[in-house]
């Protein structure tokens, strides 16, 4: 039922943007703690085109996290409208939001967030299970996704048997397995060393090259430097919005060598965990 109502929204919505995957219209978020009201977002409008690679930067307390929760459909705005892939998600119920998260968003979190004691393959299958995909197809899709991040050989390893960088790659495989409209990454390199961070960023670049839409939340300028566009948030408002390269161009700082060496690097990491 939730599914059909979302699809109805998608077709009948006159305000639905033509090409933008993400369309935020004057988003406000107020946390009511009972005694005082905290205005986390004071009117954010943002439009992200299909295939764009956007970094959202901001210090803690800037409203960056709140913006991410709303973008990820984990929370709903107090005011304003949010269209994701043409669907007005700002007024959906919890169950409808769960469906949107399942089909339209791929999450990559800072601390990997894999289900412990569950194989890499099953972790990647997780969104497909909740999306009621048949077991046979699910297995094929998850395997393909794992291979694309160079972890085909580690499908049956538990998260605890993988290095931090490899765990993050499993998370990326899980994020792209449903072919979502947007990949939402929250400090994806925050817990990684420099080498692993570089590799993860190259994977994001590769995904961007494949035409995927990526929103990257970070406070590190070096990480933001991989994006095609940098949006800075402060005090609940957009402070600056800089376009580095065109949407259709490859992301800056992309290293074709690293992308090519992806599978070779996997072998090295496996031998020295």
């Amino acid at each position: 039922m939730e599914v059909s109502s979302s699809e109805l929204d998608y077709k009948s919505s006159i305000d639905a943007p033509q090409s933008g995957v993400i369309e935020l219209q004057n988003i406000q978020k107020v946390y009511d703690t009972g005694t005082i009201q905290v205005k986390a977002l004071r009117g954010v409008s943002l439009r992200v085109e299909r295939g764009d690679f956007v970094a959202i930067m901001g210090a803690s307390g800037s409203g960056k996290s709140t913006l991410m929760n709303i973008l990820g459909c984990l929370d709903i705005p107090t005011k304003g409208r949010y269209f994701l892939d043409g669907v007005n998600v700002s007024s959906l119920s919890q169950n409808e939001l769960a469906h949107i998260r399942n089909t339209k968003i791929g999450f990559v979190f800072q601390s990997y967030n894999l289900v412990p004691r569950t194989s890499a393959l099953r972790n990647v299958e997780l969104p497909l299970i909740y999306g009621s995909i048949k077991k046979k197809d699910r297995h094929k899709m998850a395997m393909k996704s794992l291979k694309s991040v160079g972890l085909g050989k580690f499908a049956y390893n538990l998260p605890s048997e993988l290095s931090g960088g490899m765990q993050q790659r499993v998370t990326i495989a899980r994020a792209i397995v449903t072919d979502p409209a947007m990949i939402l990454a929250d400090e994806p390199t925050g817990a990684l060393d420099t080498v692993s961070s570089a590799m993860i960023m190259q994977i994001f670049c590769k995904l961007s090259l494949q035409g995927r839409t990526i929103v990257l939340i970070t406070h590190e300028p070096e990480i933001a430097a991989f994006a095609k566009r940098v949006v800075e948030v402060r005090d609940g408002r957009v402070l600056s919005d800089r376009r580095i390269v065109e949407v259709s161009s490859p992301p800056p700082n992309v290293s074709p060598d690293l992308v090519d060496q992806l599978s070779g690097a996997t072998k090295n990491m496996a031998t020295s965990p």
Binding site: A98, R101, L114, Y130, G131
Partner: peptide
């Protein structure tokens, strides 16, 4: 709790 968070983030409904 974290596992529940992950499951919900990737699309598990309350019922699931």
């Amino acid at each position: 709790t974290r596992e529940i968070g992950i499951r919900k983030a990737v699309g598990a409904t309350r019922a699931a």
